[in-house]
Amino acid sequence: MRRVVVLTTGGTIASRPDRRGASRAVDGAGTLLARLAGEPGVPVEGVDILRVGSYLLAPTDMAGIVTRAHEALADPEVLGVVVTHGTDALEETAFLADLVHDAPRPVVFTGAQRDASAVDTDGPRNLADAISVAAAPEAAGLGALVVFDGRIYPARGTRKTHTLAPAAFAAPDSGPVGLVRDGAVTLTARPVRLPVLPLAELDLDGVRVDIVPCYPGADTVALDAVTAAGAQGVVLEATGAGNANHAVCAAVARLTAAGVVVGLSTRVHAGPVAALYGNGGGVDLIEAGAVPLGSLRPAQARILLLALLARDRDPARATRDLPLLAGTSPG
């Protein structure tokens, strides 16, 4: 039977307040689907995977979700897959799915900002929209997508931009690729698809990549601590277009020489990393061995580096492939 598979993992869309007023994920797939305002227009199969807030997910959990989505797509009768997910870490799991997505049928991520007990909860509408996109022939070949508040975003470059508002997600450097309203899907752009990584090599167990912020007056204590704890990779959340200071540059040179992969991102909302400044800036960081990651922000840059290191734990290969998969190299 031609159908859409909905994989539920918890998050606000499945949450209700306890006696303290603290929300916890409690609703399963049956409850989420029963709360849809009307018939979705396509048969839907609900499958429970997890029931947690996404702030509790580890990378191995994210890989498990991605694997379950690919297992569902192995059935040719499945039109597409929807994953309901907490919004805190949705951008990471969606990007991980995109990195290994080699099927024409989409995996669509969605969630909610208002819990299931709210009279104006946005969960049922977001879920209905995501089902419509997953079933739409127009979505073929788009990879992993994020559907939220009536907009369709590519997984790559999409991130949570508001803590509470229903329009919680944006893709600042590219914008949405379409809209969905009352079951009607309209595409306005198609995301650029980059080479995919083999799902079979996505073994994240034991792979550690940390994000280290750079800020005025930052020293190397955090950088040294995460590598001493076993990080095989580090993403620098630099200032501006990708700048730090002399101490951080020296540490990057030392760590990359020792086989630690260092990716260079930024804390700025939009725009690419660019090698503009010396004297401890981006030019010096890149000369020290940091790899500029274009418009990828730290959360997704970390996922990319985790996936590259997971293949064979080869830092030289990961460093070589980072620009291609970050979208900063033509190949």
Rank of each mutant, 00 (worst) to 15 (best):
A189Y: 05
A189T: 10
A189Q: 12
R190Y: 08
R190T: 08
R190P: 06
R190C: 12
P191L: 12
P191K: 03
V192S: 13
R193M: 09
L194N: 11
L194W: 14
P195I: 05
P195T: 03
P195L: 06
L197M: 06
L197V: 06
P198S: 04
P198W: 09
L199P: 01
E201K: 14
E201M: 10
E201N: 13
L202Y: 04
D205S: 14
D205E: 14
D205G: 13
D205Y: 10
G206Q: 09
G206V: 03
G206P: 03
R208F: 15
V209R: 02
V209F: 09
I211D: 15
I211E: 15
I211M: 14
V212T: 10
P213T: 06
P213A: 08
P213K: 03
Y215W: 12
Y215P: 12
Y215I: 13
P216E: 00
P216G: 09
G217H: 00
D219N: 12
T220V: 14
T220Q: 11
A222R: 06
D224V: 14
D224L: 11
D224F: 14
A225G: 00
A225C: 02
V226D: 07
V226E: 01
T227F: 04
A228G: 11
A228K: 14
A228E: 11
A229F: 15
A231W: 01
A231R: 07
G233N: 12
G233Q: 06
V234I: 07
V235N: 05
V235H: 07
V235R: 05
E237I: 09
A238E: 04
A238F: 12
T239L: 15
G240D: 02
G240A: 11
G240C: 10
A241K: 10
A241T: 11
G242V: 02
G242K: 09
N243R: 04
A244H: 02
A244Y: 00
N245I: 00
H246E: 15
A247C: 06
A247L: 15
C249H: 03
C249Y: 03
A250L: 15
A250Q: 13
A250S: 14
A251W: 07
A251F: 03
V252W: 00
V252R: 08
V252T: 05
V252P: 02
A253P: 08
R254S: 09
L255P: 02
T256G: 05
A257C: 07
A257N: 09
A257E: 06
A258N: 04
V260H: 05
V261W: 08
V261L: 11
V261C: 07
V261G: 09
G263E: 04
G263S: 08
T266F: 01
